[in-house]
Design a protein around this nucleic acid. Structure first.
Length: 281
DNA sequence: AGTATCTCCTGCGTGC
DNA sequence: TGCACGCAGGAGATAC
C-alpha cells in the first residue's frame, strides 16, 4: 500500500529513466479508475518530453510543456518501467511509452488510483486535488508550532486527525499508528488537548519515521526496471501496525487493536496513555 | 464549519 | 474444491 515513502521511492526510481524522454504514446486499457482517465491525454502526450517528476503528498506530478499529469497510486497501484514490447498482465491498466523503448506501466488491482491532467495554462497547485493540501511532513513548515496551532479546538482523535491531508499530507494508516507509538501518544486522545511537548514529540516522530522509511525504500522494495515489487525491509520494522495482540516491542504488554474512523488502529496500552483530561475542548 | 460516515475496487484469508 | 463473507485502505463525496 503506497504511502508517502513508497511514492517518493517510486519518484526517485523512475525519474532517472524517464526525465527528458519523449512520449511516443499512451495506452489506456482500463480507464475507469477512481476517475476516468481523460481521453484527450492520448492525443496530448505523444511528442511531449518529460520535464520533471515531482511529488505533492502522495500525488506524483509528471510535468510536460503542455501541462502536468497527476498520478495517484491509490492503495494498490504501482508504476514500473518495462520494455514497450513486454506483454501487459492482469491489472496493467496504463502504459506511458517513451521513444526510448521504455514504458511506464501502471498496475492497480483495486483501481483506487487516478491519472488526471492539468493544462499548463492553469497552475498545478491550483488543481482541486492539490489546492487544499496541508504542508509536506518533511518540510520546515511542518513543525510543532504549526501542529499545535492547527489542533486547537479540534474534537477529533489524534489518529484520524493526522490522517487528514488538510492537516498534513502523506501520513496514512501505517505511519499514523507508528508515529503515535514512537511519540507515546494514545490514538484516541483528542487533538484539541495536544500539549506543546506532545506536539514536539509527534512531529519529530513523524519526520523520523517517514525519512527512515524512504531510506529503506518504503514498505515495498521495487526494482523499477523490469523486476517486480517485493516486501521491503521496512515492513519488518513496524512496531504496532498489523501487530494487534502481539507483545509491545518496548514493554512486551500485548498490543490492543481497535477501530478508529473505520481504520484499524493498534497501540500499546502501557506505553501510550490517555491523558487524564481528554474532554472535548 | 466541523465531524462522521459512505464509497469506489479486487485479492486474500477464514469458516463452513 | 468451492463458495460466501469480511476485511484491507486513500481520500473525495456526502450526510449530519
Amino acid at each position: 500500500m503506497p504511502e508517502l515513502p513508497e511514492v517518493e521511492t517510486t519518484r526517485r526510481g523512475i525519474a532517472p529513466h524517464c526525465l527528458g524522454k519523449t512520449v511516443s504514446r499512451l495506452v489506456v486499457r482500463q480507464g475507469q479508475l477512481r476517475w476516468p482517465v481523460p481521453a484527450a491525454l492520448s492525443t496530448i502526450l505523444p511528442g511531449q518530453s518529460l520535464l520533471a517528476v515531482e511529488r505533492r503528498g502522495k500525488y506524483l506530478l509528471l510535468q510536460f510543456a503542455a501541462g502536468t499529469a497527476i498520478w495517484h497510486l491509490g492503495m494498490s497501484g504501482s508504476l514500473r518501467l518495462v520494455e514497450a514490447s513486454s506483454l501487459p498482465g492482469k491489472h496493467d491498466h496504463i502504459d506511458l511509452c517513451f521513444t526510448s523503448g521504455l514504458c511506464l506501466r501502471f498496475n492497480d488491482p483495486r483501481r483506487f488510483g487516478a491519472l488526471l491532467w492539468q493544462p499548463a495554462a492553469e497552475p498545478i497547485e491550483q488543481h482541486s486535488l492539490l489546492a487544499h493540501l496541508g504542508p509536506e511532513p518533511l518540510s520546515d513548515t511542518f513543525d510543532s508550532a504549526y501542529l499545535l496551532a492547527r489542533s486547537r479546538r479540534v474534537r477529533v482523535a489524534l489518529k484520524p486527525w493526522i490522517m487528514d491531508a488538510k492537516v498534513v499530507v502523506g501520513v496514512g494508516n501505517i505511519y499514523a499508528n507508528e508515529s503515535l507509538f514512537n511519540a507515546k501518544l494514545h490514538p484516541e486522545q483528542l487533538a484539541g488537548s495536544l500539549t506543546a511537548k506532545q506536539a514536539e514529540r509527534w512531529v519529530a516522530a513523524i519526520k523520523t519515521i517517514l525519512q527512515y522509511a524512504i531510506t529503506r525504500g518504503g514498505t515495498t522494495l521495487r526494482d523499477f526496471v523490469g523486476g517486480d515489487g517485493k516486501p521491503g525491509y521496512f515492513a519488518q520494522e513496524l512496531n504496532v501496525y498489523g501487530r494487534g495482540g502481539e507483545p509491545c516491542t518496548a514493554c512486551a504488554k500485548p498490543l490492543v487493536e481497535i477501530r478508529l474512523g473505520q481504520r484499524s488502529t493498534v497501540y500499546c496500552p502501557r506505553c501510550q496513555k490517555l491523558p487524564k483530561v481528554n474532554r472535548k475542548p
